[in-house]
Computed example of a mutant assay.
Amino acid sequence: MLPTLGGHRLYLRHIIPSDVDALLGVYADPKTMRFAADPVFTDTTMMQKMLQSVACLYASGESFEWAIVLKESGLLIGTCGLHSFNTARNQCEVGCLLGSAYWGKGLMQEALSTLIPYAREIGIQRLLADIDQQNLQARRFFIKQGFQLQGDNGFWLALV
């Protein structure tokens, strides 16, 4: 099981099967999912399949996905994780999704600030973020986090 990582207002914890309804609340929001690689989730069956995939990818070491949870209320408001590791396992992608109701409050910045030290701890030296060109809000966010455009491939790179 992934370690729980603590921030000031939130913590990151292992995603569990009982998160299905809370995660559906995030993944069913068209505004939240506008630039996501996945379609808007329409029912719990889709969410359960995603949770099975998350569990399988974690078991194989291919992906580590955390739930973003507010400390004060215990409310799950998004996800963030590390995936697509290179062969040397010193580079990977960071992925994050935050419910639109929580945008603009510094919560994703706090989540990444909580996740990055763990990434360093497991040997990650470079993080990549695959950001849709039209997602200007995410581009600005990742620039503020120290990411820079890498070549013409649309990936943003940060040295950890």
Score class of each variant (00 low, 15 high):
residue 57 L to P: 12
residue 115 L to Y: 07
residue 84 S to G: 09
residue 84 S to K: 02
residue 125 Q to Y: 14
residue 93 E to M: 12
residue 76 L to K: 00
residue 99 G to A: 10
residue 108 M to C: 07
residue 107 L to Y: 01
residue 94 V to K: 09
residue 65 E to D: 09
residue 71 K to Q: 07
residue 75 L to W: 15
residue 100 S to E: 02
residue 81 G to D: 06
residue 103 W to F: 14
residue 79 T to R: 10
residue 94 V to W: 03
residue 92 C to H: 07
residue 120 R to V: 02
residue 106 G to L: 10
residue 69 V to G: 00
residue 86 N to R: 04
residue 151 G to C: 15
residue 149 L to E: 06
residue 90 N to T: 04
residue 131 I to A: 05
residue 118 Y to F: 12
residue 82 L to H: 01
residue 80 C to I: 01
residue 134 Q to E: 14
residue 150 Q to E: 07
residue 59 A to N: 05
residue 89 R to N: 15
residue 127 L to V: 06
residue 116 I to C: 07
residue 143 I to D: 13
residue 96 C to V: 08
residue 143 I to H: 05
residue 111 A to N: 04
residue 123 G to K: 03
residue 73 S to E: 15
residue 65 E to L: 15
residue 106 G to N: 01
residue 62 E to C: 07
residue 91 Q to N: 13
residue 71 K to G: 07
residue 138 A to H: 13
residue 92 C to L: 06
residue 142 F to Y: 10
residue 146 G to Q: 03
residue 119 A to D: 00
residue 125 Q to P: 02
residue 135 N to C: 11
residue 132 D to F: 03
residue 129 A to G: 11
residue 138 A to S: 12
residue 120 R to C: 02
residue 63 S to I: 03
residue 115 L to P: 03
residue 105 K to R: 13
residue 114 T to A: 03
residue 82 L to P: 13
residue 94 V to Y: 04
residue 105 K to N: 01
residue 140 R to V: 04
residue 145 Q to R: 13
residue 136 L to H: 11
residue 63 S to V: 09
residue 69 V to T: 00
residue 134 Q to I: 02
residue 92 C to S: 13
residue 134 Q to R: 12
residue 108 M to G: 14
residue 132 D to A: 09
residue 97 L to D: 01
residue 110 E to M: 05
residue 126 R to S: 12
residue 58 Y to A: 11
residue 61 G to P: 00
residue 133 Q to C: 00
residue 109 Q to T: 04
residue 95 G to S: 11
residue 91 Q to I: 03
residue 57 L to Y: 04
residue 141 F to P: 04
residue 130 D to R: 10
residue 84 S to A: 10
residue 118 Y to H: 06
residue 73 S to G: 02
residue 144 K to H: 12
residue 132 D to Y: 09
residue 79 T to E: 13
residue 116 I to M: 10
residue 84 S to R: 12
residue 69 V to D: 08
residue 57 L to N: 03
residue 64 F to G: 05
residue 85 F to D: 07
residue 121 E to I: 07
residue 64 F to S: 06
residue 110 E to L: 04
residue 96 C to A: 08
residue 98 L to Q: 05
residue 143 I to L: 14
residue 123 G to T: 02
residue 107 L to V: 10
residue 86 N to E: 04
residue 81 G to S: 07
residue 132 D to P: 04
residue 137 Q to H: 15
residue 122 I to T: 00
residue 68 I to F: 06
residue 137 Q to W: 08
residue 68 I to M: 12
residue 116 I to R: 13
residue 143 I to P: 03
residue 73 S to K: 01
residue 136 L to T: 10
residue 119 A to R: 00
residue 127 L to S: 09
residue 74 G to T: 15
residue 138 A to Y: 08
residue 141 F to E: 01
residue 140 R to S: 07
residue 77 I to A: 00
residue 129 A to P: 06
residue 124 I to G: 09
residue 79 T to K: 00
residue 137 Q to E: 09
